[in-house]
């Protein structure tokens, strides 16, 4: 098994509140790993550690280790900006920048210093195709991104993340506000993308995890309750709590 992200006894506290309690987890390269669990279970906190967006929160204390390709990413000397270019994030609500579709996608590459029109054209086209959005917007790339529908906006955000050419893609409940058709399109895109990327998909929707993920992790109250191949988790969970959650008895 080819480990991309590894956590070791990872504990996070917000004040007196423990958001993560000693989590040990290995995320495999070129796979989709699903994080599930009820609200407040710590899955989103883990995501915000991997892209270091947790830096924007106050009063956080972190113990334990978190590494990508064996390199620690929690230290103060870590190049956070560089890290965020390696780890792309798609948020729960579609958040297009108030610019054109083209400029939204070119935003990341431009920051990296890519300014040549032809290079940007290529990146934009490639990213939109991978996010299964190209055919819908190819004739109006310079229209404001805010004019797109919710589902289109979310795929635009995925394309924008892909344009960074990251190694890891984090999706934090990306389909929570979307209709089934848009959700299916996102899942379709993810299935293609796992060949080249390591993907983590956070979702409240256990069915989506079952459909889309190779591995699944169940979190509850900050603890990693169970982590295994999706098939095993959904057919033969080791822990009673996991089974109850999957069957919709709580959460």
């Amino acid at each position: 098994m080819n480990v991309k992200i590894r956590t070791e006894k990872l504990t996070v506290r917000f004040g007196n509140n423990e958001a993560l309690k000693g989590v040990d987890l290995d995320v495999c390269k070129n796979s989709i790993t699903g994080f599930m669990g009820p609200a407040g279970s710590g899955k989103s906190t883990l995501i915000s550690l991997i892209n270091r967006m947790i830096d924007f929160e106050d009063g956080v204390r972190i113990e334990g280790g978190l590494s990508i390709d064996g390199e620690d990413i929690l230290g103060t000397s870590v190049d956070v900006v560089g890290l965020r270019r390696r780890v792309g994030t798609v948020f729960a609500v579609p958040l297009p920048l108030p610019r054109s579709i083209f400029e939204n996608i070119a935003y990341g590459p431009r920051l990296k210093g890519i300014n040549k029109k032809s290079d940007l054209d290529d990146i934009v086209e490639e990213s939109l195709k991978k996010a299964v959005l190209w055919s819908e917007v190819c004739d109006r790339l310079h229209v404001s991104a805010l004019k797109l529908s919710g589902g289109q906006q979310q795929r635009l955000c995925l394309a924008r993340t892909l344009a960074l050419r990251p190694e890891i893609i984090l999706l934090d409940e990306p389909c929570s506000g979307l209709d089934p058709i848009s959700t299916a399109k996102i899942e379709e895109a993810l299935n293609e993308l796992k060949k080249d990327y390591t993907i983590i998909l956070v979702s409240n929707n256990t069915k989506q995890i079952a459909r889309a993920c190779d591995f699944a992790a169940f979190f509850y109250m900050g603890t990693l309750v169970e982590f295994d191949q999706t098939e095993k988790i959904f057919t033969n969970p080791r822990v009673k709590q996991t089974e109850d959650y999957i069957q919709g008895k709580f959460g």
């Binding site: 967006m53 924007f56 900006v81 965020r84 270019r85 948020f91 920048l97 935003y107």
Partner: peptide
């Protein structure tokens, strides 16, 4: 949120501010 997005795309604080 706009700031969060910009940071998540690898922008520094100044780049986020200016752009």
């Amino acid at each position: 949120n706009l700031r969060i997005v910009s940071h998540s795309l690898g922008a520094t604080k100044w780049e986020t501010t200016v752009k």
